[in-house]
Amino acid sequence: MSSIDRLIILAYDPGITPNEGGLPGLSVLKSVVSSINLYGIIAVVGALAVSLAVWAWGHFTGGHNSEATGKKGAVVSAGAALGLGAANGIVMFFSALGSQVK
């Protein structure tokens, strides 16, 4: 196989693009994913509250391990909240970036 044939194979466009009306149940799937995102955000709020309480407890009782664990939990909870809140934007950004690849 010559290098030109390989280039032609690599340049082949299969013509596949996202089709919103392609399958039934898309609105149900969107609703389910939105609900999962909501449950995740609620769980993060609870985890943040517990982590901050552990951090304060460790600080005021002199438990350095508890204090460090509470700090870690607070940072992880904040990161999870950031990821859950930005999930749509992240996916849209990389999807748009991927559609520009030629």
Rank of each mutant, 00 (worst) to 15 (best):
A53F: 10
T69D: 12
L23S: 14
D13P: 05
R6K: 11
L97F: 14
N37Y: 03
S3M: 07
M92H: 11
S35P: 03
V50W: 05
I41D: 11
L82N: 03
H59R: 06
A87V: 11
E20K: 07
I36S: 12
Q100Y: 03
S51G: 01
V75W: 13
L97C: 03
L29I: 09
G83H: 01
I16Q: 12
V91Y: 12
I36Y: 12
V28K: 12
H64R: 10
S51N: 02
I41Q: 15
D13F: 03
I4V: 13
A81T: 12
K72T: 14
E67S: 12
E20Y: 06
G79P: 00
M1G: 11
S27H: 00
R6H: 10
A80T: 05
I42Y: 04
I36E: 15
G63E: 13
G15K: 11
L7F: 10
G22Q: 09
G46T: 02
V33N: 08
M92S: 09
A47G: 11
F94P: 00
S34R: 15
A49C: 02
G62C: 00
L82T: 07
I16T: 04
G40L: 02
N19A: 09
A53T: 06
G79N: 04
A81D: 13
L29S: 03
A47C: 01
V44C: 11
I41T: 09
S35I: 00
I8R: 13
A78F: 10
A68S: 07
Y39E: 12
